Amino acid sequence: MSLPQPVPPSWKDLGKSSNDLLQKDYPFAGTALEIKTKTPSNVTFKVVGNRASNSSVILGDLEAKYNDKSHGLTLTNTWTTANVLKTQIEIDNQLAKGLKVDVNTSLAPSKDAAKGNKTAVLSAVYKQSGFHSRAFVDVLKGPTFTADAVLGRDGFLVGGEAAYNVTDGKISRYALAAGFNAPEYAVTVHAHNDLKSFSASYYHRVSADVEAGAKAVYDPKLTNGGVAIEVGTKTYLDSAAFVKAKINNAGVLALGYTQSLRPGLRASFGMALDTQKLNEVDPTGPVHKIGMSFVFDS
């Protein structure tokens, strides 16, 4: 008798190890600040502010999240500086074991009610041994029904996604993926945009202190012959600090440094250099970028 299979990652998390290695902790686009606090009544407040390096406008979110673990209920309300109100209601493991139901709405108020931007998405996530599936219904757009599923066995993963426009009565997009996950490495291949573009990612935990990864994307619409390649690495200097570096085939080198200054306080610094334009000045904007991010979590 075979052992129970673990729950595989969701469709959006296929290739997550490589994506996190290559995308996270590089705050070179500007300056960011995030503050989290939690009350004794299980309400978490989060304030996030961002300012792009080429703009003087500060964008921010104010979020309040209430979590009732005994009833599997999570309520999140967010108000942005763009005057968008967002509400998310999650019910986990109450209607059926392994089933999570989610209602996500947003509203951008306007003096003209007809011009107000509104969204409403209903979703359900169901996961069991060796199976992880999601379904979404965009009530106000289309409406559109989107579903994805991932099957996993002994580290091997196979998944697919499809979107169906109810009004038009046809599939608007579909994608497939396959991969293999092991404790120290992961490989994932995606076929996107109705199998017209492809990506492959690789992640390897070389040792307890060193990680490496790469990603290649083939899209006929891209420059450089339709292929974009990016490789990167992460090295822990000690238990409180690490450095990251990555470079792509366009010659852009990115560096990141993250330091835990004390419990609940983390600072990150990032820089991106265009190695093909080290001595050039672009009148449309900065060729090289530098930024920082601070996170307070009490």
Rank of each mutant, 00 (worst) to 15 (best):
V243Q: 02
A250D: 12
N249L: 04
N248V: 00
A216C: 05
V187S: 03
T223I: 08
E230F: 03
I247M: 11
D209N: 15
G226S: 05
V252L: 07
A177K: 01
L253D: 02
L222G: 04
K246S: 10
G225A: 06
T258S: 05
D238M: 03
A191Q: 04
Y218A: 10
L237Y: 05
L237V: 01
V187N: 00
A178T: 11
F198A: 06
A186N: 14
L265R: 07
F198P: 14
L265W: 10
N193S: 11
Y257P: 06
D219S: 07
P220I: 08
A254V: 15
A241F: 00
S207H: 08
T258V: 09
S199L: 01
F242D: 02
K196C: 11
E211I: 01
Y257S: 14
R266N: 10
S197V: 09
Y236H: 14
D238K: 08
K221M: 15
A241G: 03
L253W: 03
V243H: 02
A200R: 04
H204E: 03
R262E: 15
K221P: 15
S239C: 08
N249Y: 02
S268I: 09
D209V: 14
A250R: 11
S239G: 12
A177Q: 00
Y257D: 06
A228F: 08
L253V: 09
E184L: 15
N193Y: 03
F198N: 05
L195R: 01
E184Y: 13
A228Y: 04
